[in-house]
Nucleic acid binder design. Structure first.
Lengths: 156, 156
DNA sequence: ATGCAGTTGCAAATCATTTGCAAGAAGAGG
DNA sequence: CCTCTTCTTGCAAATGATTTGCAACTGCAT
C-alpha cells in the first residue's frame, strides 16, 4: 500500500497553501484543447498548480478572488468542468458535501476522509485494485471507473 | 466473493415488482422508536418490504402514490430520513443521480452499478474489507464507514 | 488595429432535498 | 368511542450546489 499525501487543508478553511511547483502544464493543455487562455482561466489553473489539498468550487473561488476579485463563481464552475472534461483534474463527490477537486496526473489512488477535519488522505492498494478487477470479471462487467472512500477518525 | 443479488429494476422504471416477503419488521421498529404509525408510513414501509431494487425517492413516491395518491413527496423524503436514522434502510448516493435506498439488515456489501441500465449488483469481498481495515490501521485511523462502488458495463 | 467567435459576470433557472406552517390524524386517557 | 394533545402531513416556499440564458466583453487570428 502506498500513501501519496496527507491531507493538507480543508475545503472550508480559506487558508494558505505553501507554494509547491507541480508538473502539470494547464496552460498548454488549454491551448491544445483550442480554448482561449483568458484571465480567469490563467488565475484558476495558476492556483491549481499550487494546490496540494482538495478544495471545493467555493474555496477555489475564494482563492481566485484574492488574486482577481472580478472572477465569478460561475466561471469557477465552468472552468472546473472544462478541466475535468480535458482530464486535467478529478472531481470527487465525497459524502455530504460539494464536489472537491484535485489535479489529475499522479498515479490513481483512493481516499480516506477524516470526518472531523475534512482532510483527505490519498492511498493506493494494488491488491484492492486487483480484487476489484477480479470481482468485475466474475460478474461479467468491464469496470469504467470506481470509487473507494474510507471515512474515519484519527485513532487515539 | 459473494454475490448477493443481481440488480432488479431501475430507479426510473415505474415498473412492477414481484411480491417478495422480507424479514424486516418496519412497523415494529417505528413503534419501538416511539413514532406514530401513520397511513403514509404504513404504505411506504409496506412497499419497501416488497422491494428488491434500489429505488430513489421519486420512484418510491410513484409506487406509494399508486397505493395512496394523497401521499406527498415531502413525506417520502421525511420517511426515508426517519428510517435511515433508525438504521432500517441505507441511503446510497451513486454518481450523478439522486439518493437511492435499500433495506438494511442483510450482510454488508458493496455495489457494482451498470452504467447503461442503472441496475445495481451487490457483492461482498472479505478480502477487500480486510485490506481496507489494514490500510486504515496503517494510516492511524478508525474507519466509521466506507463506500466502494464499481461503475461498469456488461462485457460483450 | 479589427472583427468575431469564444468567454464572462450576473441573474435567473434547475435539481434534489428540506422546512415553515396551518390543517389533519394517531393514540393515550378517560 | 370521544377528547385532547401532539406528532404528522401536504403544500408551497426555501435551500444549497451547480448550471444556464443573455448581453457585454475580450482573446487572438488576420
Amino acid at each position: 500500500m502506498t500513501i501519496f499525501a496527507t491531507g493538507v487543508g480543508v475545503p472550508h478553511n480559506g487558508g494558505m497553501t505553501e507554494a509547491v511547483i507541480h508538473k502539470r502544464d494547464y496552460e498548454g493543455e488549454l491551448k491544445r484543447a483550442g480554448v482561449r487562455l483568458t484571465r480567469p482561466r490563467r488565475v484558476i489553473v495558476g492556483l491549481l498548480t499550487q494546490t496540494e489539498d482538495h478544495p471545493d468550487a467555493l474555496e477555489i473561488f475564494r482563492r481566485a478572488s484574492a488574486i482577481d476579485p472580478s472572477i465569478s463563481l460561475s466561471t469557477v464552475y465552468r472552468t472546473m468542468k472544462l478541466l475535468e472534461g480535458l482530464g486535467a483534474i478529478h472531481r470527487h463527490a465525497f459524502e455530504g458535501g460539494p464536489s472537491r477537486f484535485e489535479q489529475a496526473g499522479g498515479d490513481h489512488h483512493d481516499h480516506l476522509i477524516d470526518l472531523d477535519t475534512g482532510d483527505v488522505i490519498e492511498f493506493k492498494s494494488e491488491r484492492i485494485e486487483a480484487l476489484q478487477a477480479e470481482i468485475a470479471e466474475r460478474l461479467g462487467y468491464d469496470i469504467v471507473h470506481h470509487r473507494l472512500e474510507l471515512y474515519g477518525r484519527k485513532r487515539g
